[in-house]
Nucleic acid binder design. Sequence first.
DNA 1: TCCGCGAAAATCTCCACACAAGATG
DNA 2: TTCATCTTGTGTGGAGATTTTCGCG
Length: 360
Amino acid sequence: MLKLENSRTIKHHGARGCDNCRSAASTVYCSQDSAFLCTTCDARIHAASSRHERVWVCEACERAPAAFLCKADAASLCAACDADIHSANPLARRHHRVPITPIPGMLYGSGLVMAQREDIDGDDEDEAVSWLLLNPVFKNGENPNTTDNGGMFGGEGDEYLDLDDYNSSQNSQFNDQCNNNQQQDYGVIRKSHGSDSVVPIQYQKVKENEVQERYYQLGLDYESSNTGYNYPASISHSVSFSPMDVGVVPDQSTSDASISHQRAPKGTIDLFSGTTTIEMPTQLTPMDRQARVLRYREKKKNRKFEKTIRYASRKAYAETRPRIKGRFAKRTTDVEVEVDQMFTTSLMAENAYGIVPSFL
DNA sequence: TCCGCGAAAATCTCCACACAAGATG
DNA sequence: TTCATCTTGTGTGGAGATTTTCGCG
């Protein structure tokens, strides 16, 4: 237990500590008491019928009271973080945010947490479901809907959680599946069908130093490479979870099954009818959970939806290439054109009927 | 509240070929 | 080991097809 406490201390190195116990990270701010409190202290102090209104601590910086509630991100953010995150890209600017609603009265065991969260998740239920599926671990005797972190981070699981980061400590089957789907989801070409509906999503390394610093604060091993950071090797649990979470389709033994990120093609087996079981860590420590959420947020913040041209020369060729009904057509060479013209004119001269030669 | 229909929007598929990268001699 | 040649796979855009979403009665 001491170890756990130590790890929690490390975890919350960057977060504001509880003003009461000074050992755990604060999760709420009580305006009446002018105090940041952890879930435990808040439950104890504001138990019963306390009328103190509290607000969530900003989920991004974890150091200031939340001022806005982003429904798209399902996150409570302070004014500074809100401005920062939602000015990152045009899509983020479209996020619907509302002023944060104070948390009156008894918070724990009343279902109030999820009641407020449901307001968030209503717009993004799928994310919430997948998030909960990935983190179905709760403390003993605790209401699953009112876990401290579960409540704070509810509804943030989606493909951007980068599940493949666990590959280093998982079996090869899971690695392959995750990697394959990661490639497919992120727009790697499906050569087998000869079709490239590719819209590569690239992640800027904006503020990477800040992210790296946060990882160090969390006691994580951040790698400056594209692989991000490594999770502690202690993650070794497994669970059967929905293929939707990672875009997994049932193994059809054929490698050329077309998989679409946005939509399954016609005739594709129902994702939920498949019983693909994948080894997946579930009993995440609070540190793991926060790290995943942190990385998810960073990716979500920096993701781009614009199509990226990797080879301008190929684009130029494609634009000049002849087309028939939008499809690329064979380019007839000058010699072929000349021969064709000669053949046509000679035929026209020999007989005036204009016979059209058939090459079929 | 549910259903059906049509319109609009979103997404997918197809094609040829220059080019990059790997394999081979 | 280096170089030349061959083979294989990738990436590109527009039109049509297909699917999804939305609004209306």
